[in-house]
Simulated scan of single mutants.
Amino acid sequence: MLETFRYTNNKAPKISVHRGGKSIKNYPENCLETIQYVNANMDAIYEIDVAKTKDGKLVLMHDNSIDRTTNGTGLVMNQTYSQLKEYNLVDDFGNVTKFRIPLFEDVLEWSKQNNVVLSVDIKRSVPQSEVIKAIKDAKAEDVCIIITYDLKQAKSAFALAPDMMLSVSGRNDREVEALLTSGIPTKNMIAFTGTRLSDKSLFEKLHDNDILCMLGTLGNLDKRAEARGDKLYSDWLNLGIDMLATDRPFAVAKELKK
């Protein structure tokens, strides 16, 4: 993957699906079946959120509590996995589905078998080291990208997993310069440029250093494209952006096929 996701040898998908798929009727976020459904329809990578149960199991869940995304209630950290798997996941429209909260290890196994790349967002309540260990135990290093939010997290992830791909914050020249002097090889980096459009000079600087860049259209930019037309996704890619992290993967995929 370190070769696939380099700018000079770019074979990476152009779509990163936020939370494994959102706003899809009958398919909840952070759900293995949702990832499978989206993956059957497009070439993409999948951003997922990893939380930890009371009994130390790693599961997919964005929020601290399960109230919004399941028909249960309570904090993830206060419940065992046996308790959590009794609940059903709820889609973004309030529909209770037949799907359950997945174990991270099961999602890793499926991704490895199907060569599907996961971008792994580690919740604050979970030690980075535990998630990286789970990835290594599953021998899934080549289908996982570790998301980091600052230089300290990036350096600790690189120290733990020097052969893994990292999503790093590169929203401006200052952050990019800090990355370039961090001691982390650029071949390990994908730069997340934030959820606002930057000047194309930022993308050029990243490319000059052989780093792919990802724009988060999730939120305001997705809403702008929905209101003004999906051609905006092509326009943004034409600025030099390599990947779009989106809540509207089907709209992006349709636009890119034109």
Rank of each mutant, 00 (worst) to 15 (best):
V90T: 13
Y233W: 00
M165H: 06
D199R: 12
G94C: 02
T246L: 00
N26Q: 10
D121Y: 03
R68Y: 01
L237I: 01
R19H: 06
N71P: 13
D210G: 06
T97N: 13
A191D: 05
L58Y: 05
K14Q: 15
T70S: 13
K223G: 07
S119M: 14
L237H: 05
V59C: 09
F158A: 08
D242M: 00
Y81F: 13
A154H: 08
L256G: 11
Y37V: 05
E204V: 13
N9G: 00
D121F: 00
N114Y: 07
L180G: 12
D142L: 01
N188G: 04
Q128M: 15
E29C: 13
N188T: 05
T217L: 01
K57D: 01
K258F: 00
L160M: 15
I146N: 14
T73D: 11
A161N: 08
I190P: 01
D55Y: 02
M165Y: 03
Y46P: 03
Q128G: 10
S129H: 12
L232V: 01
A44W: 04
I135F: 09
K155I: 08
D43A: 11
H18R: 11
N78L: 13
H18V: 00
H207L: 08
K11Y: 05
T53M: 02
L232A: 02
Y7G: 02
N238Y: 10
E175F: 04
K254D: 15
A40M: 09
N30C: 05
N209E: 07
V50N: 11
Q36M: 11
S16V: 14
V120I: 15
V143Y: 00
K22M: 10
L215P: 04
Q79M: 12
K139P: 02
F93L: 09
L212F: 01
K254E: 14
K258M: 09
D63H: 08
I66K: 07
S167W: 03
T181V: 01
N10T: 04
A191R: 05
T97C: 12
K152G: 06
T4H: 03
H207Y: 04
L244C: 04
A51P: 04
W236R: 07
D106Q: 09
G219A: 09
Q36W: 03
D235K: 10
M61T: 11
K155V: 06
R196G: 05
F93P: 03
K112S: 13
T34Y: 12
E141S: 14
D67P: 10
I184K: 12
A12P: 08
S182F: 01
P13N: 05
F5E: 10
K205W: 00
L84C: 12
